[in-house]
């Protein structure tokens, strides 16, 4: 640190609060298609972590299988990453969270991974409220297996081949709200400003934070007739508010007008400020959230923003009454009861 300060010149890269550069938050180069929405999301994850000065070694990156699930390799190369099996990242995340509650779990999944093969694990993860950020890069299509419909594809949306989808979509956000999720947001890969604010807010939430991000598949689902294309999303997007996130350490310097905004305090003391845009919307009302999501679906609107938040719901590590130290760091002295314990157990069995 001292050395780098001395050598500082005009070319020295900017650093964040903990002295890391934006580059320190990057991963290996993406191998996804040019223009893929997922890469835009990766950039915002890198930006959010850099700006929040997240310590990379305290992050565990998790994913399932699919194009989206490849992306944890493209950010935070200093963090441990785990590319699990299809649809079952939530169970890996649950185990990691139990073993080391001090880690920040940052997970990326897709619509096939979450809404089809992994729907059961998704619901139970949310039900348990495992503390983690869970990003669904939602393009309505199976990209890695070359263009089959996923369960989030809208009725009537068309594949490149002209085949039309006949089944109704599963709406991940309303499902998450219904399952009791304490943080549900939706965004669009082409809206970096909103996305980075939602990612930062999700990182301050203590519990499962679900972010459903529509991320067009440029190869298999970005054509006329697709409801997950850049064109469609841009035309139909309806932000319910402008979202601002203020980290705890910046609060003193921030000046905002509380009168025109809904302000939500996060468990770590930071704030989300939601400036009213399209509607008078309070994301703390569960029934209103479900109602608003369903009305938007009926009107073919694509609702984005922080849809629901509940900062009071206890997370799974709290419910489980885990030791103050992460379980993975406990030694034999705490893990193996003494000789008297075994003698007592044996005596009971005599």
């Amino acid at each position: 640190m001292v050395e780098s300060t001395l050598k500082q010149d005009a070319k020295a890269p900017n650093t964040n609060r903990i002295g890391l550069t934006l580059g320190d938050y990057k991963g290996s180069p993406s191998t996804l298609c040019d223009g893929c929405g997922h890469d835009a999301i990766t950039s915002q994850i890198i930006k959010a972590c850099y700006e929040l000065a997240v310590e990379p070694h305290k992050v565990a990156k998790l994913s399932g299988i699919g194009c989206s699930s490849k992306t944890p390799a493209y950010f935070l190369s200093r963090a441990h990453g785990f590319n699990a099996v299809h649809g079952r990242m939530p169970s890996i995340a649950t185990g990691v969270s139990m073993a080391n509650k001090d880690l920040t779990l940052l997970a990326v999944s897709g619509d096939g991974d979450t809404a089809s093969i992994g729907l059961g694990q998704f619901c139970h993860l949310v039900r348990r409220n495992v503390p983690m950020i869970y990003v669904i890069e939602n393009n309505g299509v199976y990209g890695l297996t070359k263009g089959q419909f996923s369960a989030t594809a809208d009725i009537g949306s068309k594949l490149k081949t002209g085949v039309s989808n006949e089944l109704p979509p599963i709406d991940i956000c309303s499902l998450a709200v219904e399952m009791g999720c304490g943080f549900v947001g939706r965004s669009f890969a082409g809206d970096p400003k909103q996305l980075v604010a939602l990612l930062k807010a999700a990182m301050s939430h203590k519990g499962t934070a679900i972010l459903d991000v529509v991320s067009p598949c440029v190869t298999f689902n970005n054509h006329e007739g697709s409801t997950k294309s850049y064109k469609y999303a841009k035309e139909h997007e309806m932000p319910i508010h402008e979202i601002g996130y203020i980290p705890f350490y910046e609060q003193i310097a921030v000046d905002y007008e509380p009168g025109s905004a809904v302000e939500v305090k996060m468990h770590d003391g930071s704030h989300i400020v939601l400036r009213k845009a399209a509607k008078d919307y309070d994301p703390r009302n569960k029934l209103a959230a479900i109602d608003t999501i369903h009305k938007a679906i009926a009107e073919h609107q694509f609702l984005t923003g922080l849809l629901y938040i509940d900062e009071k719901k206890p997370d799974f590590t709290t419910i489980m009454q885990l030791d103050d130290q992460p379980l993975a760091s406990l030694g034999q002295d705490k893990l193996r009861p003494g000789k008297d314990a075994l003698s007592a157990i044996m005596a009971e069995l005599k």
Partner: peptide, 22 residues
């Protein structure tokens, strides 16, 4: 953790093992 099925039970066990717990 009483898991939702054995698919999840082994996933949780592996996640925990990976993160350093027995």
């Amino acid at each position: 953790i009483q898991a939702e099925d054995e698919l999840a039970a082994i996933g949780m066990a592996l996640g925990a093992g990976w993160a350093g717990a027995r």
